[in-house]
Design a protein around this nucleic acid. Structure first.
Lengths: 145, 145
DNA sequence: GAAGATTGATTCCTCAATCTTC
DNA sequence: GAAGATTGAGGAATCAATCTTC
């Protein structure tokens, strides 16, 4: 880029792409689903009652409403989540984590966790890791508002 | 994630997704092509003779061989790049930047550059930006080898 | 009419198979 | 047989349009 001062953004783009490719490759080799699936299961597992409205889930995963519909279609077909109608507002739907979903998430973490360490955290000092997290969270926070 | 010490990786994932969405949105609003197109044009513009072998271009963009074939198909149809057969090894093909490609890249930069500043660099100090770039380059470098 | 979610049509990505040249 | 690139088939992301409920 014709830069005045070089931004960290291109490096982030490259690091992200390489990481994602390597992680997906490890998951696939282990016969496991992809990162989008993991993310959905994990976000649901953190939510109160392990359930979330569709648009809330989409927002936290940073994907579109149509994408979340189709993703939940697949996860539901695989028995990892279940849809439930909202009681108070019958337009709404919840995605609810199933026991199978929780189990699979845990198994995926067994591959995902060492991958994050080997490919990412291993190359950072404790201080760098903390600083990185602070910077990136700040940037994300600014875009959420 | 069930973490011992929180990694910066989830924050990177979120920041990346939000950034990409916001940048694509600005480019689309300006009637311009997407980031993949920009990246290809820019990588070619940096290369000696503004030309690169297909697999070299794919490697630098961190996309697959089939993806680069199809991306260059589109860019060539739009007159932004041109294919050339390799003289020495006739299996190979070059993607060569055209004048129209260079012009469009410049116009896109007029939208892309302020977006990077507004959404990313504006929230970082000079020192943070430098440190971020160093960390992410190191991580990318480790995966390249 | 607006919000929540889904669907149809299109575009794009990916895997495996293919073609060509080395 | 292997490297470079492309292609066909299937899966997934996206936009706009739709359906339902508020």
């Amino acid at each position: 880029m014709p830069d005045e001062r070089p931004s960290a953004w291109p490096a982030l783009l490259t690091a992200h792409a390489l990481m994602e490719r390597a992680i997906e490759s490890r998951l696939a080799s282990a016969g496991l689903p992809d990162l989008a699936c993991y993310d959905a299961l994990w976000v649901l597992e953190q939510a109160p009652g392990t359930r979330l409205r569709m648009h809330e889930l989409a927002s936290r995963m940073v994907i579109t409403r149509s994408s979340i519909t189709r993703l939940i279609d697949r996860l539901e077909a695989a028995g990892l989540v279940q849809r439930e109608r909202a009681g108070d507002d019958r337009r709404g739907a919840f995605a609810v984590l199933t026991a199978a979903g929780r189990d699979l998430r845990r198994r995926m973490w067994g591959v995902y966790r060492p991958a994050i360490h080997d490919l990412f955290d291993r190359h950072l000092s404790e201080a760098e890791s903390t600083a990185l997290r602070a910077c990136l969270s700040r940037i994300a926070e600014a875009m959420r508002t």
